[in-house]
Simulated assay, not measured.
Amino acid sequence: MSLTKKEVYQVLHTLLAEKQKEIVSSIEQLKQSAAEDTKSSAGDKYETGREMVRQEINKAELMHSEYCVQMDLLRSIDPNEEHEKVRPGSLVSTDRAVMFIAIGFGKIEVNGQVVFVISPQAPLARLMMDKATGESLTFNGATQQLVQVS
């Protein structure tokens, strides 16, 4: 595995921080839009528009809250800690993919290499738990060999 856990951690941390910043900006824009709408509208149309903006703000605030939870979970991982067996915080390379067991984030690219960032509760991660380099597992009918665990 040419990637280090520290490199993957840094890229993931940066991407998550960017998402947090974007959602905060979106919330501010929605609140500004709601304030401007108050000045220029009247009647039922105003109430409907205001309610739609309020729902968008609520959705955005919920997403922001989720990103904060994910950031807290990510910060609880020590990227310098090496693991013999798969557990939360492990960087796992199989003969099929590279995965970082941390948070449910999806596919990211680190130094030109695809890494799947998955939650420890994900079905594949649960199958990998406590397995070491050289062991294998079968997921969705496909067998994967653990090439490296760190």
Results as ranks from 00 to 15, higher is better:
residue 99 M to N: 11
residue 100 F to I: 12
residue 134 G to R: 11
residue 142 A to K: 12
residue 119 S to C: 14
residue 82 E to H: 10
residue 103 I to K: 00
residue 140 N to W: 12
residue 96 R to E: 13
residue 109 E to Y: 08
residue 77 I to P: 13
residue 118 I to Q: 04
residue 133 T to R: 07
residue 118 I to A: 09
residue 114 V to D: 02
residue 136 S to Y: 00
residue 79 P to A: 03
residue 93 S to E: 07
residue 111 N to V: 12
residue 118 I to G: 01
residue 108 I to V: 05
residue 140 N to V: 14
residue 124 L to G: 01
residue 115 V to W: 09
residue 117 V to R: 00
residue 109 E to I: 15
residue 80 N to H: 05
residue 101 I to E: 01
residue 103 I to W: 03
residue 110 V to I: 08
residue 79 P to N: 02
residue 83 H to L: 14
residue 115 V to R: 00
residue 108 I to P: 01
residue 100 F to L: 07
residue 101 I to T: 01
residue 127 L to P: 08
residue 130 D to C: 01
residue 79 P to G: 02
residue 96 R to G: 06
residue 100 F to A: 07
residue 106 G to S: 05
residue 134 G to F: 15
residue 98 V to H: 11
residue 117 V to S: 01
residue 108 I to D: 07
residue 92 V to T: 02
residue 108 I to Q: 09
residue 131 K to P: 08
residue 101 I to D: 02
residue 106 G to C: 06
residue 139 F to Y: 12
residue 88 P to M: 07
residue 121 Q to D: 12
residue 123 P to T: 05
residue 141 G to Q: 03
residue 79 P to F: 14
residue 108 I to H: 09
residue 121 Q to P: 01
residue 91 L to N: 07
residue 126 R to M: 15
residue 129 M to R: 02
residue 84 E to W: 14
residue 101 I to F: 06
residue 109 E to A: 12
residue 132 A to P: 00
residue 107 K to P: 01
residue 85 K to Y: 12
residue 89 G to L: 13
residue 83 H to V: 00
residue 130 D to G: 00
residue 137 L to Y: 15
residue 135 E to Y: 15
residue 92 V to W: 02
residue 107 K to E: 09
residue 107 K to D: 06
residue 85 K to E: 14
residue 125 A to T: 02
residue 89 G to Y: 08
residue 96 R to M: 09
residue 86 V to W: 04
residue 107 K to S: 03
residue 98 V to Q: 11
residue 115 V to D: 03
residue 128 M to G: 04
residue 142 A to E: 13
residue 142 A to I: 15
residue 109 E to L: 10
residue 142 A to S: 11
